[in-house]
Structure formats: structure tokens, C-alpha cells
Amino acid sequence: MPWTNEEMADEVIQFFKPYCSVNLGIGMPTIIAERITDDLNIMIHSENGVLGVRGRPSQKTVSPTLINAGKETIAIKAGASFFDSSLSFGMIRGGHIDYCVLGAMEVDCKRNLANWMIPGKKVTGMGGAMDLVNGSKQVIIMMNHFSKNGAAKLLSICNLPFTGLDVVDIVVTEMGVFKPNGSHFEVLKLAQGISSEDLKMEMSILKN
């Protein structure tokens, strides 16, 4: 059975060390904020200018000026701080953020990432992704394994424009956990009942 989004989030969380700092990208990774337990003492960073995100506000405490990078309302925990965008990206570019978790359109075994545009069809923009992949100590990709037309998004080389070169450390999909090593995707773990064939990846880039 492929993992649910919650189970994928829990797989990502297993990489985090206690007392680390984590930036969560827009989309799928935001669910991680709701599943990190307090005992890990993790400081969640959101690049719009907050360190110390903690889940969601109540209807009583919700504030239009307290949001994450996905423009969703959030809550903060004790020890949190607010700052401007330059300081926020200084934390990222300066190497002060331990992990970032981003969604992706494509990842390849050379550790390259593509997640910001489909030429002629779709432009979402890179937002903070290009800074995050070059600045964070570890880059974890959390994404659906297959594109809408059913093809695997883990490739020998990305077809779409790059977000960053040689930057991806770990890929978590609903099918398993993978580590791109420059020539292959090492399979670190597969969801229960999933076999290599189910991954629909080029067999030459898969290393069990």
C-alpha cells in the first residue's frame, strides 16, 4: 500500500534531529508542521519571516498578519520570533537552517531539482526554493511519486528547468524513501507491499 500524506510526513520527520531548525515548503510539506511532536523541540521556519511555527490557531487567536509562506494562518510557540525577509533569507543562505522540505515536479539521480515552471504552460515562480536548496544543510523532497500522466518523477535527468544543481539529499514519495547519489537512486525504504516494479522508474538508475 502506498503511504498516505500523513505517513509520508512521518517518514520525513524521522530524519530530523531534536533541537534542529526546519523550513517547510508550500503544499504537501506543510502537513509536517501538524505532525511534529513538542518533545523534538524543533523550530519551524517560514521564509516570510517567522521562526517557531506551531500548528494552527484557534478561531479566537487567528490573525491576518500571522501566516506561513503558503499564506495560511498559523500559530507560534514560545521562543518564536518575527523578522524581515532579508534576515529570513540570511538564515537560509547563511546555512543556519538544518533541513528544508520542498515539493517537486522532477528530481534526478544527479541530485538536481526542478519545481518552478513548465515552459509555455505553467509558471509558479521559484519563490524561496532556489535559496533554500542552496542554503539549507539538508534538502528533503516530499512529493507524489507519479506525475498526472502516470510517469515517475524520479528521473535520470530532469526535463524541466532546474531549481538547483546537485542539491537534493533525500526524496520521500508515497512509494518509498530514496537517496540520489549522483548516478542512482538508492532505495532506503519502500512502503509495505511495494516492489521495485511498482516504482515505474528506469531500472538502470535504481539501486536496491
Binding site: 521564509e47 524581515d84 525577509s85 532579508s86 529570513s88 533569507f89 537560509i92 543562505r93 518552478w116 509555455g120 504552460k121 505553467k122 509558471v123 515562480g125 521559484m126 519563490g127 524561496g128 526554493a129 532556489m130 535559496d131 542554503g135
Partner: peptide, 21 residues
């Protein structure tokens, strides 16, 4: 996005950290 794809407006996309800096 529509105006950008139809080239009705010139858009320079800048990575957010580079943008703020």
C-alpha cells in the same frame, strides 16, 4: 500568470532571497 504567458507584461522572476537582498 496569464499576462506573463501571453507576453502582455514583462516579468523578471527573482529568487525570493535574492529579491530581498
Amino acid at each position: 500568470e496569464v499576462r506573463m504567458l501571453n507576453k502582455k507584461i514583462e516579468v523578471e522572476l527573482v529568487p525570493q532571497g535574492t529579491f530581498s537582498e
